[in-house]
Amino acid sequence: MSIDVLIPESVDAAAEAYGDGRDVTVVGGGTIVVQLMTQGWLRPTRALMLSKAGLSYVRKSGSAVTVGAMTPVTDVADLFAPLGPCAANVGDNEIRAQATVGGNLCAPTPPEHPSGDLQGPLLALDASVRSTGAGGESTETVEEFLTHRDARLVLDLSFEEPVAGAFAALDRPHAHHPTALAVSAVKAGDGSIRLAATGAGPTAIRLSSAEAAADDPEAAGQAALADADLQDDALASAWYRERMLPLLVQRVLNEIKEV
């Protein structure tokens, strides 16, 4: 059972090693993949380790921000809302320092609860994802990317600093308790509002109906229920999420209104 392991030392070498991505297991920070291998639930034949690929960076130019896929979650924890507060709310101190932004975007959805907390803020920020794979390099929105994320190697993410942003999540009883439900809100320069939720589906989802009703936070909260596919899982019941989602939507909308 020998595994072919590639440890490229540049972005180009990483893209080449990834090729069309077939049968390649990408190892980012490893906080998810390594334990899956330990338990025998993941048995790669080829692995691509990104630790030396030069993909860890946060670049700012004016209001534009670009974050490399291998950037530790810690390094985005002091950015603006909703991304910063959400990142600060991931796992514990040590997990945040090892977990990467790219790994979070690509986190598999385990059966027991949704994961990938950063997807919500990135969706609300309308981030674009630069990735490579079959057909070469491409850039698309997070929303598109989340529909086919298995077959791409993420290189980096870009987004604009919003006029206002807010993040609200259900409290976690312990640092290792995944977030049961969270809502991110972003107000763009033209005054338009984007809303996204994690914990309301297998990956983060956009709350379009709520966005349309954003002028009235209470109505928007109710409208959000039409956007979500709320499920029972190990963290919370659908019943509970149904009652919490409108409240979180209201809370973030009221927060960005004040700005």
Binding site: V5, I7, V27, G29, G30, T31, V34, Q35, T38, M49, S51, K52, N93, E94, I95, A97, Q98
Partner: peptide
């Protein structure tokens, strides 16, 4: 399983050793 990697605490159970050359 926590150990220090270059002075920072890290979960050794989650760290593929290949990243530590």
């Amino acid at each position: 399983c926590t150990v220090l990697v270059d002075g920072r605490p890290q979960r050794s159970c989650l760290t593929a050793v290949g990243s530590l050359n």
